[in-house]
Design a protein around this nucleic acid. Sequence first.
DNA 1: GGTAAGATCAGC
DNA 2: CTGATCTTACCA
Length: 207
Amino acid sequence: MTTMAATAGGSDRVTVLPRSFYERDARVVARALLGKLLVRDDGRVARIVEVEAYLGERDPASHAFRGPTARNATMFGPSGHLYVYFTYGMHWCANAVCGAEGLGRAVLLRAAAPLDGVERMAALRRVRRPVDLTNGPAKLCQAFGVDRSFDGADLVAGDRGLVIADDGFPAPRRPPSSTRVGISGGREHRWRWWIPGDPYVSKGRPS
DNA sequence: GGTAAGATCAGC
DNA sequence: CTGATCTTACCA
C-alpha cells in the first residue's frame, strides 16, 4: 500500500470501508462514495468521481423495480457487495449494494480517476486520450477487469481482490447533481452526483 | 418460442 | 448520430 498512499494524496492511512458505511440510504452512500478509492489487489487504484443511486422497488429506473430475479439477485443481498450486470450486449457495469438486506438498492460507480496501476488499465482499454480510460461505468469496469465473475464480490472482505477504501480525501459537502444517465423512468429524481471539475466525470447528457 | 429494450461506447 | 451486440424479461 506504500505506492498507493504516496500517489493518493490524502492521509497516509488507508482503510477499507466497513459494512456499516453501506448500510444506509443509497443517496447518502452515493455522495459519501465520492472521493473514495476503488482498489484491486494487483495495484490498480482509482478515485471515485461520479455515482448514481438506485432505489430498488420504488424506483422505475432500477433493475430491482420489478422485484428479485436471477440477474439482480445480488442487489437484494447484504450491503457492501458488488452488483455487476451485463448490458447492451457487450458492457459490464458495477454497483455497490447498500441499505438493509432485501431492499434491492445500490450505487452505480460511473467514473473514477486512475491513481495507480494505469499501465494495467491501459492494457485492457485501447484509448487515444488517457481520460477515456475510466470516464464511464462500462469503461471503469473494463479498466479494472470487472465482469460477471465479480458479481457478488464482498467489497468489505475483499474476497475477490476488490475493495473500496478511504484515504482521507474528503467527499464534497454539496456535490452537483443531475438526473441519471441513460434511463427512461425516474427522470424526476436528481440522483447522479459528481466531484465538480474533475476531468474524469463522464460526459453526461442529462439535465 | 418470439421479441423489444437496455443504468453504454466508439467511430464517423 | 448511429451501429454494435446479446442477455433478460415479458408476452403469447
